[in-house]
Design a binder for these strands. Sequence first.
DNA 1: GCCACTTGAGACATTCTTGTCTCATGTGAA
DNA 2: TTCACATGAGACAAGAATGTCTCAAGTGGC
Lengths: 192, 192
Amino acid sequence: MSQVAYGCLMAVDREHVLRSAAALLTRKSTSTMDEVAKAAGISRATLHRHFAGRDVLVRALEELGIEECEAALSAARLDDGTAQDAVRRLVRELEPAAGLLAFLYTENQLFEGEEQNEGWARIDAGIAALFRRGQQDGEFRIDLTPAWLTEALYGLMASGAWAVSEGRVAAKDFNHMIVELLLGGALRREES
Amino acid sequence: MSQVAYGCLMAVDREHVLRSAAALLTRKSTSTMDEVAKAAGISRATLHRHFAGRDVLVRALEELGIEECEAALSAARLDDGTAQDAVRRLVRELEPAAGLLAFLYTENQLFEGEEQNEGWARIDAGIAALFRRGQQDGEFRIDLTPAWLTEALYGLMASGAWAVSEGRVAAKDFNHMIVELLLGGALRREES
DNA sequence: GCCACTTGAGACATTCTTGTCTCATGTGAA
DNA sequence: TTCACATGAGACAAGAATGTCTCAAGTGGC
């Protein structure tokens, strides 16, 4: 019908399916496999052939999120220049993955019993290390712990993604809103 | 068995049930009615007698959240003193409801099709008005929109609630972490 | 003690989602 | 053309959660 030719044999584009799933689940985290399939433009049977079950799909999304985060961390070169500039680069690199991150951030609550993917631990550590470096260099205040700043970064990215998807914030302001709030806060800099 | 006498006829304490449900659903938003009932120490049948269905329960939690938010807004006297101090009072008053807010904040994604409760619109407007006042008084920077600051406040409260519940942040630091990040950001004030 | 009322426990049908399967269709390569 | 392969559509059973019901038990007011 409205199929698009991908490669040979018209094989399903795994990347495309994951993107669609991420976009849908970000909006409605309880979407069924059928809804996910429709969103990707494939049948439920085919979706099942590529992702044996809902948990497999979510795990795949988690892997994708981890990959994108690690790629963003690398691209942002967190060890270079001032910590402030590194944070700005990090948010910019992380923006394309914001929707996926928002989904995974809340979904992680469900993995309570099980051990969480070690990838997150590495990413958390990398970001926290950046904030710690900023504190040691005297750039960042020391009364906000690196762990909290890391958590806040996730939370603000999720809030930003939702706010954009619901039209409360313009997509082009995403970066500025998050970075400026995270770094500078709401108060005017000129204040004593 | 381990029942506690409340009023006459040992009627179920609606408030207690809602509190338990909020606490459980904050941790695991997909908990079943059976789990909610067990968490409240009552049977599924009794839970059903008081809340006809899962949606009714969620709506009741939403009402509770709205009530607590409106009470917090009143208690914080958002029109008094500096906007900065008002924000501090607001977060302090909002803290007890943080867990419930975190749950509703993500759950609201599910109400996509339906119209959202007008209570939230009033609360959003009240908080946004506070940020707007702060901007007009020259306290707050004007490049961060009131709508975004409101959204960020919700997001940080949710992140804070989760971080505390998972032990990444000490409960006693909840207020400080949120208020200081929201108002002052991560950068040291002494920066140019 | 008696009665009205509420609860807990369990049975039950219903609905929704999932996971599996089969079969017809259509594509691209040989 | 012919073959191998992937897809779409649909049927099907299994499981989970829900909503409803009945019945026995316990409490408090009378």
